[in-house]
Each structure stands twice: as structure tokens, then as C-alpha cells.
């Protein structure tokens, strides 16, 4: 006959041991999860993702039709483009961050936040590919190619716009500068007429440089005509120059 009472003691011992271990590990994990969740997220809220999912779940109100697929596709593309930005940011940060972590320059918290962001972006990419495939069978394979081109194109266009925006201020500056040069030249000219002496050295350099630069252009020709047959005693380049500046 088995002695149940004697046997129950080791079983009770085992039960208490396993039970306390389970409780401890459960509490520990929960604690860890809440600590990880309480860390600030790496990125700002994913606006494009929110828009896409909102549109997807938009209840058809009375009188308003269902959101058409084309709008959803556009929203998904925007979401993929934002993901590309985030992916690039993650990849750029990874090398530097792991070096800093090894040297102990940054805390463990930052590394955890980073790893969570990395995991999130992986899930996000998979999710986008699945959504794309749901719209059209092979779109998942190309959506990120398209999105990355879109990101680069957008970046390029903003750069061009930035540079081209300088054209107007530059032109203004140049007009002012030209007027300055002209007025100082005129002053020299007046002095010159009074003194009947050749131009001073510093202006001469300017003068020669400009006449080289102008080299018989349309601008110059117009100016010459506008100036009319003004005093042109000295022939050659010098005379032409003076007419231009009159």
C-alpha cells in the first residue's frame, strides 16, 4: 500500500517551489515590460500610419461612400515613404550608438529604446508589405522601391528649391553692388575731368576687369545706345567703358 500522507510532502514541496518560481518570473517580466513601455519612444508618433489605419477603419457614414481604394493606396505609399525615412535613421544611428554603448558613453535605457524602435520598424515593414500585397498581388515586392525613390526625389526637389530661392536675393545684391561700383566710378570720372588725369590705380583694376567681363555683350550694347553720343574723346575700350557707365 502506498503511504499517501508521506508522499504528499515531497509533492507539496515541489508544488510550492514551482509555484513561487512562476509567480516570481511572472512579476519580473511584467515589471520589465512596464519599464520598457515607460521609456520614451524613439520616433514621434507615426502620423502616416495613423492616417492609413484611420481611413481603413473609417465607418461609412450616412450619405458618404466608402473610402476608395486609390485613396488607401496613396495613404499606404505615404506610410511606406515615412518608413523609409525611419529605416534610414535607424541604420545610420545603429553603428554610432553601439560604439557609444561599448565605451559606456550612453546609458542602457537609450539602447533599449533603440532596440524597441528597431523591432517596431521591422514589424512595420512587414505590415506594409502585407497590406500592399492585399491590394495587388505583387505590389509588396516593389512598394518600398517606389517609396525610396519618392523619398529621394522629394529630398532632391527641396534642395533645388532652397538653392533657387537664393536667386532673387542674389540678383538684388548684385544690382546694389553694381550701382555702388557705378557711382564710385562716376565720382572718379568727375574727379578725373576736373584733374584731367588718368584713373587711379584701384579703380583701374576694377575697370579693366569689368571691361574684360563685359566683352561686347548685349547689355553693354543697349547701354551704349541709351547713353547716346556722349563725350567720347578717348577712343577704344576706355571710351566705350565710359559711355557704358554714363
Amino acid at each position: 500500500m502506498v503511504d499517501w500522507l508521506a508522499l504528499s510532502i515531497p509533492f507539496a514541496y515541489l508544488g510550492i517551489l514551482v509555484g513561487s518560481l512562476a509567480v516570481f518570473s511572472n512579476l519580473y517580466r511584467k515589471n520589465k515590460a512596464t519599464r520598457a513601455a515607460s521609456l520614451a519612444p524613439w520616433f514621434l508618433p507615426h502620423l502616416q500610419r495613423n492616417i492609413y489605419l484611420t481611413l481603413l477603419h473609417l465607418e461609412p457614414e450616412a450619405g458618404s461612400p466608402k473610402v476608395p481604394d486609390s485613396v488607401l493606396k496613396a495613404a499606404l505609399l505615404r506610410r511606406a515613404t515615412e518608413d523609409i525615412h525611419r529605416l534610414v535613421a535607424i541604420r545610420n544611428a545603429k553603428q554610432a550608438l553601439s560604439t557609444l554603448l561599448q565605451r559606456g558613453s550612453v546609458g542602457d535605457d537609450l539602447w533599449q529604446r533603440f532596440q524597441r524602435a528597431e523591432k517596431e520598424i521591422e514589424e512595420e515593414l512587414r505590415d506594409v508589405v502585407n497590406e500592399a500585397n492585399a491590394f495587388s498581388p505583387n505590389w509588396g515586392a516593389t512598394i518600398f522601391q517606389s517609396a525610396s525613390e519618392m523619398a529621394q526625389n522629394a529630398h532632391m526637389r527641396t534642395r533645388i528649391d532652397e538653392i533657387q530661392a537664393q536667386a532673387a536675393p542674389e540678383r538684388e545684391w548684385w544690382e546694389r553692388r553694381k550701382a555702388d561700383i557705378q557711382s564710385s566710378f562716376m565720382k572718379e570720372l568727375d574727379d578725373d575731368e576736373a584733374a584731367k588725369l588718368p584713373l587711379t590705380g584701384s579703380i583701374n583694376i576694377n575697370n579693366i576687369k569689368q571691361s574684360l567681363a563685359k566683352g561686347g555683350s548685349d547689355d553693354d550694347a543697349v547701354l551704349v545706345e541709351a547713353g547716346g553720343p556722349a563725350a567720347q574723346v578717348q577712343g577704344g575700350a576706355k571710351g566705350k567703358k565710359k559711355k557704358g557707365k554714363n
Binding site: 502620423l47 502616416q48 492616417i51 481604394d69 486609390s70 485613396v71 493606396k73 496613396a74 495613404a75 505609399l77 505615404r78 491590394f135 495587388s136 505590389w139 516593389t142 522601391q145 517606389s146
Partner: peptide, 24 residues
């Protein structure tokens, strides 16, 4: 973001995007 979304949507509706999916 909504302005960008709407303009992207318009360009997706152009004829060179079959099924309003951008070609590779």
C-alpha cells in the same frame, strides 16, 4: 501630410499608373 496625401492621390489617378499602383 493631408495635402501631400491628396496630391499623391491625384498623381496616382493619372493614366500611367494602372490600377492606381505606381509601376516599379
Amino acid at each position: 501630410e493631408l495635402a501631400k496625401l491628396n496630391s499623391l492621390h491625384r498623381s496616382l489617378l493619372s493614366p500611367d499608373c494602372p490600377n492606381s499602383i505606381p509601376p516599379p
